[in-house]
Design a protein around this nucleic acid. Structure first.
Lengths: 334, 334
DNA sequence: TTGAAAGCGATACCAA
DNA sequence: TTGGTATCGCTTTCAA
């Protein structure tokens, strides 16, 4: 079939044995003599034989070593960290990630799920807990382990690894109100669909309501949650509501952008304005303030999702929902 | 074979036609009556049939839609940007990326190449131009389009998309010498193998030698090229060579870390010490200086690699080496 | 320890 | 417009 690729049959013929014997030697499964092994392996080397895994998976009832991994995008640093954690762990167990970037769109996720399932993956890791009806149906019918990561789902399709984003926003809201701030703002980005960041924002707002404080202003930019959007988002927010006392950002990168805006404008942090981020991202290590933030173990989250999936593959699934937790870290910016 | 998955045969049976007819309808290829189409598609929907692409690729002589993409790691922001560019473009043409993180180790790349080739990918995109002998042999034998990205290779295995890192380092060296700096330093990270960053460092050094200046001090940390390593790397470099006048960093994130160190220590930039980065990364948009850097179109690089690969897949390959170029941007930090 | 035959799920090819 | 048959490369199963 394929151009000029060496097949098992050719190796077998060259070694003077049957296909089956060659197959057994190559997979080191079943029995064969040492002499046979030597002969076969010599031909494998000589011919540069590479097995066709498509055929193996197809023929045997064995599982593939593909794992589909969907993330919204890589422009957001946290997803890069998660992906790194996932792929490193999977790679260590000889599994490969098939990437899917959904760009925060559920219908794109659906299309990707359909395609990736057709490749007979061993399992799937999906970022987020919202999926279209059709996606859910396909996922359930697939009969393979599915891990929803990032946004903890207490009743997941199959398994879930993440944190409670709503609670983390709530805790930050309560913390800021506790510090005496009364006029609060939020700066983030908006997506096509409700997501973890939205949950944080909602938790934040709720905490403020619960505390009897009511002034909150939200700004959701149509941009990626990076440094510069934090900068100009702050500018916009303060232009429309100059009396805001504290701002909670979608993540630390945006918060650093905001911090920078305040410095540029001569606003003292936290006296004139308080700033809080989220994620405990690398940038914080060099900011000349200790930023108030929420620490989330991104790499570990990815690693754990992969672990849970591999466990399920090996038949050792136990719980189906893993909360990796977060910690609010008070700093000197609030 | 597989648990409870619906096969083409079942769909055909349910629709009362042959496998072939069902296959034609589903792929919308060949001829069939409208009535047949309706019947078959109704069963596809009802049964939730998902084709087994493994079998398709295997049966027909058609290509798979897998593309293997290797990158060193995601801790380095530039590779995340590249990957995003690649996957977005591939996705738009219904191809899927199989990720491989080589962690800068050629033998890990080799292992990955072996595995990924066994999945019969349509093509491969590899970061970097160094590969083991065995890797090279496998790649050449594979008979599929291979794109080496990032570090331009004028005599690539198959195709190359990137920039000349050595030249970009050289240009920065010449620029700094031209500005009057005589004692120059470099701060970066070291990897198991020579790579693009090494090439930049070498170009930098050569420019300085060519200019008759000879004092250069290099510091290569065993860390990732992020903000904090830039901070403490600068501390280390200046501790051992306090008379250094200008520092070139592996990338902007490290440079910003260095800038921050200098500010912390009350060193004036650029009067006491000049700082130059590389990459034109997002962080620069909020740094209160205009950083001297080298602009590289990361996203575009990824997109272009994917384009070149897709072109080759469609039989429209033309050139085999694409230099996307860089621009040195002088700023106020030098 | 080895080999022959059947079959995985789909498509190509040819015949009806 | 339709269907039968061979086939892709490998593994499973069973027999030698």
């Amino acid at each position: 079939m394929n151009n000029n690729k060496i097949s098992l049959e050719e190796v077998a013929k060259a070694a003077g044995v049957s296909k089956m014997t060659a197959s057994r030697v190559i997979r080191n499964k079943g029995s064969f003599s040492e002499k046979t092994r030597t002969k076969v392996m010599a031909e494998v080397e000589r011919l540069g034989y590479l097995p066709n895994r498509l055929a193996s998976v197809f023929a045997g009832d064995i599982n593939s070593t593909f794992v589909g991994v969907s993330i919204p995008d890589l422009g957001n640093e946290v997803f890069g960290l998660m992906l790194e954690g996932i792929d490193r762990k999977l790679g260590a167990f000889s599994h490969q990630s098939i990437l899917g970037m959904t760009q925060h769109a559920l219908n794109q996720e659906e299309a990707w799920i359909k395609t990736v399932l057709s490749w007979q993956p061993a399992g799937l890791i999906l970022t987020g807990r919202s999926h279209t009806q059709k996606s859910q149906a396909m996922l359930k019918a697939a009969g393979i382990p599915i891990v929803e990561i990032w946004d903890l789902n207490s009743s997941p399709i199959d398994m879930s690894v993440g944190i409670n984003h709503y609670d983390s926003g709530y805790e930050m809201g309560r913390y800021l109100v506790g510090k005496g701030y009364r006029k609060l703002g939020y700066v983030g980005t908006s997506h096509l669909t409700a997501n973890a960041a939205t949950a944080r924002m909602n938790g934040f707002t709720k905490a403020i309501e619960d505390a009897g404080s009511r002034f909150t202003k939200h700004l959701c930019l149509h941009d990626n949650p990076g440094f510069y959007p934090g900068f100009y988002g702050t500018e916009q927010l303060l232009a429309s509501s100059p009396d805001i006392e504290a701002i909670f950002y979608q993540n630390d990168n945006m918060a650093v952008g905001g911090l920078n805006y305040c410095e540029t404008k001569g606003q003292k942090v936290p006296d004139d304005i308080a700033i809080a981020g989220w994620g405990d991202l690398p940038i914080l290590s060099i900011v000349p303030y200790k930023m108030t933030t929420v620490r989330v173990p991104h790499l570990r989250l990815g690693r754990m999702a992969a672990e849970v999936l591999l466990d399920a593959l090996h038949g050792n699934a136990t719980r189906n929902s893993y909360d990796v937790g977060f910690i609010l870290i008070p700093g000197s910016t609030t």
